[in-house]
Amino acid sequence: MTAAPRIDVITLFPEFIESSLEVGVVGRAVKRGLLSVQSWQLRDFAHDNYKTIDHRPYGGGPGMVMLIDPLRECLQMVRQADPRPAHVVYLSPQGQPLTQAKVRELAHRPRLVLLCGRYEGIDERLLQAEVDEEVSIGDYVLSGGELAAAVLVDAVGRLQDGALNDPQSAVQDSFENGVLDCPHYTRPERHELGDVPALLASGDHRKIARWRRQQSLGRTWLRRPDVLARCDLSADDRQLLAEFIAEWRAQDGGPGAVR
């Protein structure tokens, strides 16, 4: 039997990582044995009385920089905890953006090690020697890498086989097929805020699938044209999108005109 994928998180706040695993889809995946997540307290690998893991930067300037040796010793212990090769990811605003394609790639790796920085960052020599790639969850700065690590664990964890009660949920997610997800409706069918589109209650699954694809294309055109520009649309998709745009413009549309 193949061992479940494993994610190790090196952090100053392991309790934060552990609390995020107690609920939701990822919590269920861990309980089902579909994913293993271990947190490591970096201060356990500092050997002075003060458990020092940072120091002032060379060249002056504000803040502190995380030291090489505690991180290196921790990484060595992490690598020894499982014989499978570990892919080390540093959560950093300087990393490549975390996309759904990157999530799928990371989800297929048997072992991930997530390195959570703090302060002004980590000594560059450690990054050059030990880190395989840097990943960013957005063009902004957080106080540390723990929130980003929790995001990555969630995104990777929900793609493990059996994590979702219905595997089709992941297939239909935004970005999985290159565009944003379509609108969704549930009971009641009629409401003071509006009615469910009649087509969705028709039982005609072919027409429903066509409508959903058109809405996905249209929403992407309205909200994320940058995403749409990267898509290689089929002739059918281009026709669906042209019909959506024509209808939207005929209605003197705005963002609220998505139907």
Rank of each mutant, 00 (worst) to 15 (best):
92 S>K: 00
98 L>A: 07
12 L>K: 03
206 R>N: 07
6 R>S: 01
218 G>L: 08
219 R>D: 06
169 S>E: 15
190 R>V: 11
157 G>R: 05
158 R>L: 06
113 V>E: 14
22 E>C: 02
210 R>Y: 03
89 V>H: 12
80 Q>N: 14
56 R>T: 06
179 V>I: 14
256 G>I: 05
15 E>S: 00
186 T>K: 08
70 P>K: 06
158 R>N: 10
82 D>C: 01
25 V>K: 10
80 Q>M: 13
7 I>Q: 06
227 V>D: 13
4 A>E: 05
258 V>D: 06
168 Q>M: 01
131 V>L: 04
176 E>Y: 08
52 T>W: 14
149 A>F: 14
60 G>P: 13
19 S>Y: 10
237 D>I: 02
76 Q>N: 04
248 W>Y: 12
60 G>W: 09
138 G>P: 13
206 R>L: 02
32 R>F: 00
106 L>A: 00
214 Q>C: 07
44 D>P: 07
179 V>Q: 14
251 Q>T: 07
64 M>Q: 10
45 F>L: 12
183 P>L: 12
217 L>Q: 05
257 A>S: 10
35 L>V: 03
167 P>A: 08
17 I>E: 12
179 V>N: 15
206 R>D: 05
203 G>D: 09
98 L>N: 08
147 L>H: 05
234 S>G: 09
179 V>C: 01
189 E>L: 10
41 Q>H: 11
25 V>T: 12
239 Q>G: 08
140 Y>C: 04
197 P>D: 15
160 Q>M: 03
24 G>D: 14
130 E>M: 05
86 A>P: 14
163 A>R: 10
44 D>C: 05
255 P>E: 11
172 Q>K: 13
135 V>Q: 10
225 P>C: 07
183 P>Y: 06
162 G>D: 06
228 L>P: 13
159 L>Y: 11
188 P>A: 03
122 I>E: 12
71 L>Q: 10
170 A>V: 09
224 R>H: 11
210 R>I: 03
203 G>R: 02
74 C>H: 12
62 P>V: 01
108 H>E: 13
72 R>L: 05
2 T>R: 15
63 G>L: 01
258 V>H: 09
144 G>P: 04
213 R>E: 04
91 L>E: 11
120 E>G: 09
14 P>W: 11
238 R>W: 05
174 S>D: 09
196 V>Y: 04
235 A>T: 14
26 V>W: 15
194 G>A: 02
79 R>W: 04
87 H>G: 03
169 S>A: 12
242 A>K: 14
180 L>G: 00
5 P>H: 00
185 Y>N: 10
61 G>I: 07
141 V>W: 07
140 Y>W: 14
135 V>D: 15
165 N>M: 02
203 G>F: 03
80 Q>T: 04
95 G>D: 06
232 D>C: 01
197 P>S: 05
54 D>T: 10
84 R>Q: 11
50 Y>L: 08
69 D>N: 05
216 S>M: 08
15 E>H: 11
109 R>Q: 11
148 A>P: 12
49 N>R: 14
92 S>C: 01
62 P>M: 02
116 C>K: 03
208 I>A: 00
124 E>Q: 11
118 R>P: 10
68 I>R: 15
32 R>M: 08
235 A>E: 15
